[in-house]
């Protein structure tokens, strides 16, 4: 797996959604749900990111129902997701001074 830099929003949410294995269309619904309706992922974006993360070993194809392909997150993907989550938490924590400044 290549050295993982900061993730794009699409990668982050796709990995989050794949904590429970699913196919493309199902993932789109789950991402919308996880983001509270804020993020409506397009099928082109989704498919492009899935292909890339599959090549990078972050997700894996687990089954096919007709033309639909089911993916799941790999241990490497889970590790990358946790690392990104930690990074985002640190960013948010560092940004807490904004709230103090606003008071």
């Amino acid at each position: 797996m290549a050295e993982q830099g900061p993730m794009t929003e699409a990668m982050y949410y796709i990995l989050l959604s794949l904590l429970r294995p699913g196919h493309g269309y199902g993932m789109m619904g789950r991402i919308k749900e996880l983001s509270g309706g804020r993020l409506e992922m397009g099928p082109g974006t989704l498919y492009g990111v899935l292909s890339r993360m599959s090549r990078e070993g972050l997700i894996v194809l687990t089954g096919e129902e007709g033309r639909r392909k089911t993916y799941a997150i790999t241990p490497a993907g889970r590790e990358a997701l946790l690392a990104e989550y930690g990074r985002l938490r640190r960013l948010v924590a560092d940004g807490a001074i904004l709230e103090e400044a606003e008071r």
Binding site: T8, A10, E40, M41, G42, P43, G44, T45, G48
Partner: peptide, 14 residues
């Protein structure tokens, strides 16, 4: 039907 790409950078990749 949603637009194909919600992220222009992703479309730039294709």
């Amino acid at each position: 039907a949603p637009e194909f790409y919600n992220d222009p950078a992703e479309q730039a990749g294709t």
